[in-house]
Amino acid sequence: NQASVVANQLIPINTALTLVMMRSEVVTPVGIPAEDIPRLVSMQVNRAVPLGTTLMPDMVRGYA
């Protein structure tokens, strides 16, 4: 089972991601792999991401 990136807090739209906003968790469906967390830092979300939501590739500008 692969860990995915999950929002550690509410992340408002257009917010640049920081390490404290994300955690890794084994979830279904699988989202962005946890090993990509360092790559996600400073990328912006293109929608509001509620606490506990799995980050999907289409939620992060420039990721996919």
Rank of each mutant, 00 (worst) to 15 (best):
V27C: 03
A3D: 05
Q9F: 08
L51W: 10
G52F: 05
P38M: 09
Q44M: 13
N1L: 11
A64M: 07
V6A: 03
E35K: 12
A64E: 13
N1F: 13
I13P: 14
V41G: 03
E25F: 06
M43I: 04
Q44W: 14
P50N: 14
V5G: 02
T53C: 03
P38W: 09
I32R: 01
Y63L: 05
T28W: 12
A16I: 14
D36G: 11
N14K: 05
L10M: 08
P29I: 05
I11C: 03
V6G: 01
S42H: 12
V20Y: 15
G52L: 04
R39E: 07
L10I: 11
V5E: 01
V60K: 00
I11A: 00
G52A: 09
P29N: 05
T54F: 02
Y63A: 04
R39Q: 14
Q2N: 11
V20R: 07
N46E: 09
V5K: 01
P33D: 05
M21Y: 11
M22F: 08
E35P: 12
M22L: 12
P50Q: 06
M56P: 01
I11M: 05
M22E: 00
N14I: 02
L40G: 01
E25H: 08
V41L: 14
R47Q: 09
S4I: 01
I13K: 14
Q2E: 10
R39T: 10
R61I: 15
V30F: 11
I11Y: 00
R61T: 15
Q44P: 10
L10C: 04
I37W: 03
A16M: 15
L10K: 09
L17Y: 00
P50R: 10
R47M: 13
S4R: 02
T18C: 04
N46M: 12
L51T: 10
R39I: 11
P38H: 14
I32G: 01
P33H: 12
D58L: 15
V5F: 01
P50I: 08
P57S: 15
V6N: 02
N8G: 06
G52R: 05
T18L: 07
P29A: 05
V5A: 07
V45E: 01
I13R: 14
P57I: 10
S4M: 02
T28V: 12
N8V: 15
T28L: 14
Q9V: 15
M56N: 10
P12C: 04
L55R: 00
L19Y: 13
V45Y: 00
T53P: 00
M21G: 03
V45F: 00
V45Q: 00
Y63M: 08
T54W: 02
R23P: 01
R61C: 04
N14H: 09
T15P: 00
P57L: 05
I11H: 00
M56T: 14
L17S: 00
V49P: 02
R47F: 07
S42A: 11
L51D: 10
A64V: 12
L55V: 07
I37E: 04
D36M: 13
V6W: 02
L10S: 15
A3R: 09
R47T: 09
V26A: 07
R47A: 10
N14E: 13
T53F: 13
E35G: 10
L17D: 00
M59I: 05
P33F: 07
P29L: 06
R61W: 10
V30Q: 14
I11F: 02
T54K: 04
T53G: 10
A48Q: 14
L51F: 11
P57Q: 05
S24F: 09
Q2C: 04
P12V: 09
N46A: 12
Q44D: 07
A16D: 08
V27Q: 06
N8T: 15
G52N: 15
L19S: 09
A7V: 15
V20S: 13
P12R: 07
A7S: 14
P38E: 12
V26Y: 14
V6P: 01
Q44T: 07
